[in-house]
Design a protein around this nucleic acid. Structure first.
Lengths: 125, 125
DNA sequence: CGGTATCCAGGTCGATACTG
DNA sequence: CAGTATCGACCTGGATACCG
């Protein structure tokens, strides 16, 4: 694939391709929840424990969105007290690869970016 | 690399790794501007034309952020009328690869997701 | 031409309280 | 246990007007 075609992939028609995916997983918690669920099926409460800082509300919302998009499946057991388990769907698991490549980029370049940022801010002040 | 290590990569310490990169390029325009600049060095006005729908304000802001992080370089020529050119830095270009892999995922799965979404919404109503 | 300044509408997210 | 409901602070981004 040529570089030009790559760029077109990202830009799509008016950028809708990349917008679609970022609207889906570019929020504060989605990718974190997906990464956590990559460890295997998990209950609501466990998930809440393993995603530090997430509120109950945001975990619920995030899971609903991911479920709606078919990235996560929800299974509730009619027991008392209730038990609900979540796991990645097949499609959900295929997202982990690309997400990891972005995370790797982030980890590799974080120190340089921080340095650049400090240098930039120093120039401004 | 094991699956477990992959997940740790994304989750990092409390998810800071993935948060860092998403805060940087997860906004509405950054990745679009980067993809456009991947075509080569470009003037402010041309950039505005090639990123459909972006406002002057958001283009300026986005470019400032990318410049601050060392992903884009800015060159202004002391002429009248002024001319300012932007281009990806070396580090900026390395981001295109991972971004493309995410875009490819998005393009491949968009139809399925849309379908899942419609099915989910139909069940709710 | 390439910005900056200002205002504001809408959305996101956290805290808190309550429920089956 | 696994949610739902409500409120409010904050932030993003669009429109508009003006500037060197």
């Amino acid at each position: 694939m040529s570089d030009y075609e790559k760029v077109c992939l990202i830009r799509g028609d008016g950028g809708s391709a990349i917008r679609g995916i970022l609207d889906r997983i570019g929020d504060k918690w989605s990718l974190l929840v997906i990464a956590t669920l990559d460890g295997g099926r998990m209950r609501f409460g466990d998930l809440k424990q393993h995603v530090p800082g997430i509120s109950q509300r945001m975990l619920t919302l995030t899971l609903r969105h991911l479920e709606r998009d078919g990235l996560v499946s929800r299974t509730s057991y009619p027991e008392v007290p209730p038990r609900v388990e979540y796991e990645l769907t097949g499609m959900g698991r295929t997202l982990v690869g690309p997400a990891v490549s972005l995370a790797e980029w982030a980890i590799r370049h974080n120190p340089i970016i921080d340095e650049k940022r400090r240098a930039y801010d120093a120039r401004q002040s």
